[in-house]
Design a protein around this nucleic acid. Sequence first.
DNA 1: GTGAAAGTTTAGCATTGGCTAAACTTTTGG
DNA 2: CCAAAAGTTTAGCCAATGCTAAACTTTCAC
Lengths: 141, 141
Amino acid sequence: MKRKISSSALRSAAFNRTRADHSHELAHDYCELIAELIDEKGEARGTDIALRMGVSNATVAKTLKRLSEQGLVEQEPYRAVFLTGEGWKLAEDGKRRHEIVEKFLLALGVSQRTAEVDSEGIEHHVSAETLKAMARFLARS
Amino acid sequence: MKRKISSSALRSAAFNRTRADHSHELAHDYCELIAELIDEKGEARGTDIALRMGVSNATVAKTLKRLSEQGLVEQEPYRAVFLTGEGWKLAEDGKRRHEIVEKFLLALGVSQRTAEVDSEGIEHHVSAETLKAMARFLARS
DNA sequence: GTGAAAGTTTAGCATTGGCTAAACTTTTGG
DNA sequence: CCAAAAGTTTAGCCAATGCTAAACTTTCAC
């Protein structure tokens, strides 16, 4: 009895976490990408974001509007995008996670290509505890 | 030059994979859960699915309709749900991945609770190559 | 400095995946 | 056997994320 109830609760908690992760993923990815572009080229333009995200520029424009309402980016019409303080925090956190996960996968023995692709999907679902365990593994190996 | 182009292509490929993964995730999770319920209780009812997924039963009904249009489940009005051959395949594949990822996380040293929650989010983004690497790690440790 | 190219935004549409409320069917207790 | 409870479905709403096509602005080349 007890077991059934607690297993349902745990299961649904896991699904809820996954859904919550998904709703933040895109914002994280955009911030991370914008930071990369600013770093590489000095500015982040819609076209470049669209190219790297693999979506149309209309989609990028719509998403950026949402992100700016959420206080993550700042932009003036027809101009490049910038990150707010909050946006930078997300970008940096994302970069850190991404690096750990990617290096971890490499250390586990997968190809560079696979590490890059898989880490993109995985990074958003790794809890602090798991991230720490991955970092520990890297430090040891 | 070359480097820039190929890095954009790789990056967008990763994002595209992640988006594709997301569109299949829910179907996999439902099939897996339905299989579990059938195994445990002999049948999968909407209420139980809703409870374990952590969503309303209206959402479950709508999703099941989509899944049945996709040929993954079969149902008659006001009756429990069953999996088609295709649905069973997804369920089994999901169960296998889930088990490997969860055990892998445990072997990495995280708590049972974290392993359960994180594996739910991670399993859908793990390629065949990474899954194999995880299995290898388990076999060795 | 002007006209074409490049880039951005807006409008309008579709799908997915949530929700609540209301209607309907099945099951169950007495 | 019938009323209430339990379960299911439908209707109608919303937000997020994608698209194309069209309108608009900026940049660039000449």
